[in-house]
Simulated assay, not measured.
Amino acid sequence: MGGTEHLTVRREGATLVLTLNRPEAKNALSLPMLVGLYDGWVEADADDSIRSIVFTGAGGCFCAGMDLKALAGNGMTGEHYRDRLKADPDLHWKAMLRHHRPRKPVIAAVEGHCVAGGTEMLQGTDIRVAGESATFGLFEVKRGLFPIGGSTVRLQRQIPRTHALEMLLTGRPYSAREAAGIGLIGHVVPDGTALTKALEIAEQINACGPLAVEAVKASVYETAEMTETDGLAAELKRGWPIFDTADAKEGARAFAEKRPPVYKRS
């Protein structure tokens, strides 16, 4: 199991938990963090025993955005990290879920600050839980910058355009309740319990047929920008083969026998 000094990786049953671990800097993104994140997404995709991913931050904070000095490598030990970025110039975008979508469901567990690059990475996750004191926002325009992590494209597809433009153009903070009200997050829970709630959701996903779960996720994203006719055709193409799997037969058999199913990804 991987990880770096700024990114911890652990297993909770069939769930891989990736934790941004730089609390002294509000988990601002650094090169070791990005390398660890990328490796975590790759590990989750490669390991069939992993059925879901929970993405969170240490120290009561999710992520306060990019640390430009750390990304440049200033004061950072270990040439290995810069070598990784040099070998794959797209690595940081994959780490931030801009250029990579894991096939396993990704559940964000947010406490505290989730702003700038934090809110941009959030848009690459599938299900989102936040503590009631969490803060969201895209502050780039206030600094004369551009939210180049995908927000001008993704945000308007995930929440109503008027809310997306207000968030993008004002650079103001949003409370967890307001973020839930516009559809950016799905659950607001008491502070300190976001990870617990995210793991509960992950456990519900883990109990389902993994082939079915991954096909459903893929279909949702694949058909998002299609016409209804094209989308329905694509859904059938992806969905019908699931009915021929041993897991589908096991699901029906377990239901008839009133027992939990035992899925084997076959």
Rank of each mutant, 00 (worst) to 15 (best):
R84V: 11
E111P: 03
V35C: 09
G239Y: 01
C61L: 14
C63M: 14
M66Y: 10
H113D: 14
E222K: 14
E111A: 08
A215I: 08
D244P: 00
R253C: 06
R84I: 08
Q158V: 00
A87M: 08
F62C: 13
H92N: 13
A134F: 05
P173T: 12
V129T: 07
L184T: 03
R154N: 05
T4F: 02
W41D: 05
G231T: 07
L18D: 03
G181A: 12
A95C: 14
T152Q: 06
A25G: 07
T119R: 05
L71G: 00
G181V: 06
T170I: 00
L165D: 13
R98S: 14
Q156T: 00
G186L: 11
A218F: 01
C208G: 05
A95M: 09
T8G: 11
E79R: 02
G186V: 04
A130F: 04
P241E: 10
E200Q: 11
R22Y: 11
T125I: 09
E225Y: 14
N206K: 03
K264P: 01
G3E: 08
F255C: 06
A64V: 15
Q123M: 15
L168F: 03
F62M: 14
A44R: 02
I107Y: 02
I201A: 00
E140D: 15
K104P: 03
G3H: 05
Y174E: 06
D191H: 09
G251S: 13
P210R: 08
E250A: 15
R128L: 01
G183A: 07
R154Q: 04
L165N: 12
Y38A: 10
K197L: 02
W240Y: 10
D126C: 06
A212M: 09
G149C: 05
L122I: 07
L68G: 11
L168P: 01
L91V: 03
Q158N: 00
Q156F: 00
G181H: 10
A58H: 08
G117T: 08
D67L: 10
P89N: 08
A212L: 10
W93E: 15
G186H: 15
E250Q: 14
A87W: 10
A116Q: 05
D230W: 00
L236V: 02
M66P: 04
P32D: 10
G171V: 06
G65T: 07
F136P: 01
R259M: 05
G118S: 13
L20D: 03
A164K: 02
R157N: 01
L71M: 13
